[in-house]
Write a protein that binds this DNA or RNA. Structure first.
Lengths: 129, 129
DNA sequence: TTACTAACTAATAATGATTATCGTTACTTG
DNA sequence: CAAGTAACGATAATCATTATTAGTTAGTAA
């Protein structure tokens, strides 16, 4: 992503968090990761989950999604790809193609779509950021 | 969007909110709308802003964006279109084309992009939702 | 016009996800 | 081993949003 200040020390907790993320096709939120990691490290703190998820995404090692109201979801796959968000069960899944003309994708019914580009706008580029 | 239960009564406050949204190219959040509407209706409550923005987006009259951490932004244009989010100043602007191969769009530098489809997943479709 | 009532509002309390703080633990290098 | 410090656990604080409550307004019908 941007400049990447790598972690200075490895930690069992962070490894466990990454492992949990890598082992699922879900795009879980912090609480889900917390529950899973607790099975290995029962006394891990929720703050540790939040801190590491935040740092990992800042370092470009995982992807932070803003798919749902007020909740962040995390994705082990960092390469650009599209997601489908179910308005009924709330699941977030990867989609195989990017086509903005269809009303059905991978068998899921689409109500609407959103494309977001993230970066630095031309005004900020001028002001030497 | 979905089924649209229209508002049963008109309200000066809601009209003012829509007017503010229609009059800007920005994609403001609730606080920004609040500050603007207060210029017309000084004693309007923040709760009224939140309630009406929520209802308006449920009715498909405006679009609710989840572009940034923990903040909802609203868009008067409801048709499917792409947005650019600046990581420096936080501005959200419409982009003119949807092309996932470029690294620059409308003069803005792109770090990464996100495509989201919203709807009902195939599993939920089966369970007759 | 007046009474009725649903829908709306302002004010404010509650919620819930996330972030910050702070004392402690445990690498890591000399 | 000891000093320095990254990362942790526990918990308090924050902040956007939602819910609640009591009061007001607007449409309707007698």
């Amino acid at each position: 992503m941007n400049t990447v200040p790598t972690f200075q020390r490895k930690s069992i907790q962070r490894d466990a968090i990454l492992e949990v993320l890598a082992s699922t096709k879900r795009h879980p939120d912090a609480i889900w990761v917390y529950e899973k990691v607790k099975q290995q490290i029962p006394n891990i703190s929720l703050g540790t989950i939040y801190r590491n998820l935040s740092e990992l995404s800042k370092n470009g090692m995982i992807l932070e999604l803003h798919a749902k109201d007020n909740v962040k979801n995390y994705d082990f796959t960092v390469s650009n790809h599209a997601h489908f968000v179910c308005s009924s069960c709330g699941s977030i899944t990867d989609v195989s193609s990017t086509d903005n003309t269809v009303s059905t994708i991978d068998g899921n019914h689409i109500d609407y779509m959103s494309v977001m580009y993230y970066g630095v706008c031309k005004d900020c580029l001028k002001t030497a950021n």
